[in-house]
Design a protein around this nucleic acid. Structure first.
Length: 344
DNA sequence: CAACCGTGGGG
DNA sequence: TCCCCAAGGTT
């Protein structure tokens, strides 16, 4: 691992922030001001989610729920409808809990340190550091995927970024480099660098503003960084989705309050061992395939005769269905159902 | 700590 | 088609 002198550190800060002032992404909607509420909403949305995906969600969200107290008071269905399609839905539920916590425990007066911010639900070490540095000027690195990638290359850090214990190694290496006068801008500049000249794919190191600080590039081993052990492939699972229709209404089932797609409504899903189990009753020639981070679901639609709903099941007419927040998976199933019915 | 938790995009 | 990636957190 490279060790920078104080002079190199100061030179790096100057180069980085000069580039950021010149070419940073100033027009991102969450950069209009440093309101901690705006910053928190954007940071939570941006967890494991691309900037281009987040922008329209962020704008809609801030328009509907412009303040922390508005979010705290909103019905959860409203929050989930605004989050619909973004995924990792515990983020939305935790975000609202965090807003309620700020309003109740801090009387709407935000905690200003990363240590305090980390006590908010859904706010971990990265998000707390991002809010604290951007909104309150705390000198901490916001160690995310960008900082892993950028500094593993600049400093030739060999720690495996897939391992939790590596976070501390990066934190310790980056902390002395963070600009004490502009910590928020420093963190955001690394993000912009990580999204452009030092991105995961199509990196353009030759033209990077910090090329001269890049030890991995200097040594011709840039492709080696960051070191990351691959994740296992998603496990394949087969299901039948039962379509019960009564007077134009469809039967949905609410999923358990923990686990995948917790509390969301879907067609009743039954695991099967093979397609043979449904004896050619499926509505389509191909299943709906839906891939989660660790699961690959292949779902066969089967038309069934209507039943009396259990306590966790309910018939929804067209209007009621539209008002619900549904996971993408359920929309795929509904779409496939429409296609099969139009073929009849 | 390892496993879990969504979805979309690009090579 | 398949694989990896994307401003991580919780249990």
């Amino acid at each position: 691992m490279e060790k920078w002198s104080q002079q190199t550190i100061e030179s790096f800060r100057e180069t980085l922030l000069h580039w950021y002032d010149d070419e940073g992404r100033k027009t991102l909607p969450w950069r209009q001001n440093h309101d901690p509420y705006r910053v928190m909403v954007s940071e939570i949305m941006l967890q494991q989610t691309q900037v281009a995906t987040v922008i329209p969600y962020f704008e809609r969200f801030m328009q509907q729920l412009p303040t922390v107290s508005a979010l705290a008071q909103a019905p959860e269905e409203v929050v989930l409808k605004l989050w619909e399609g973004l995924g990792y839905y515990s983020r939305a539920r935790n975000l609202q809990k965090a807003a309620q916590y700020v309003v109740r425990e801090y009387d709407g007066e935000w905690p200003t340190t990363s240590k305090e911010l980390q006590t908010l639900p859904g706010v971990g070490p990265y998000t707390a550091a991002a809010i604290a540095s951007i909104s309150f000027g705390e000198v901490v690195p916001a160690v995310d995927g960008n900082q892993y990638r950028v500094f593993s290359r600049l400093l030739k850090i060999d720690a495996d970024i897939a391992q939790p214990k590596s976070r501390q190694i990066f934190y310790d290496a980056i902390l002395p480099i963070v600009d004490p006068k502009r910590p928020g801008d420093f963190n955001q500049a690394i993000m912009d660098l990580g999204a452009s000249y030092m991105s995961a794919k199509n990196a353009d190191t030759q033209h990077s503003p910090v090329k001269s600080f890049n030890a991995a590039y200097r040594d011709g081993v840039e492709s080696h960084y960051p070191v990351k052990t691959p994740k296992p492939k998603p496990v394949k699972q087969l299901f039948v989705a039962h379509v019960y229709e009564k007077n134009g209404a469809l039967l949905l089932e609410q999923r358990p309050e923990t686990g995948l797609l917790a509390n969301f409504w879907t067609f009743p899903l039954t695991p099967i061992n093979s397609v043979e189990d449904i004896q050619g009753n499926m509505l389509n020639i191909k299943p709906v395939v839906h891939i989660f981070t660790h699961r690959r679901w292949e779902i066969w639609l089967v038309k069934s005769t209507s039943i009396t709903p259990d306590s966790w099941q309910k018939y929804f007419n067209q209007e009621e269905l539209a008002a619900l927040s549904l996971p993408k998976l359920q929309y795929k199933l509904l779409e496939k159902l429409n296609v099969s019915e139009s073929e009849i």
